[in-house]
């Protein structure tokens, strides 16, 4: 009885977070902020929903499967976000005009100046570490 209510609460809460994330993806003004919504709020909603599912089945094997799903999502979501964010920034996807500071732009312009001056080794370096 109590668990049923808790399960219902977790399912509804999780989908509410997913819905908020989807709203965010529609409403937020620039790509980077949309990414905040897409990675955080939806991953959190997913965890809530699967916590509800784990409670519902109450089975060790199912619990292991669910732990695997949640762990997997929590490890891969930030990596995927980082890769897309970096690619987008290098492609000059615009920032919102309210953006206060940008300490990355000078750095990239610096490395692009190095490419133009024919410094091939320095040009190749920025792409390697995170790949």
């Amino acid at each position: 009885m109590i668990t049923d209510i808790l399960i219902a609460f977790l399912l509804l809460g999780g989908s509410a977070f997913a819905l908020v994330a989807a709203l965010g993806i529609v409403r937020l003004p620039d790509f980077y902020m949309r990414m905040h919504a897409a990675t955080k709020a939806s991953a959190f909603g997913l965890v809530l929903i699967f916590a509800g599912a784990a409670l519902y089945f109450g089975d060790l094997l199912v619990l292991l499967e669910i732990l695997l799903i949640v762990f997997f999502v929590y490890v891969t979501a930030p990596i995927a976000a980082h890769l897309i964010g970096r690619a987008a920034y290098h492609m000059n996807v615009p920032l919102w005009e309210e953006t206060q500071v940008d300490e990355l732009r000078p750095r990239i312009e610096e490395s692009e100046a190095e490419i133009e001056s024919g410094n091939a080794s320095a040009a190749a370096a920025p792409d390697d570490p995170a790949d």
Partner: peptide, 17 residues
């Protein structure tokens, strides 16, 4: 294009949910 990729990623997360 990056916006579309993020939307697609979001849709798969929602599918998992």
């Amino acid at each position: 294009l990056a916006d579309r990729v993020v939307a697609l990623e979001m849709i798969t997360l929602l599918l998992i949910a």
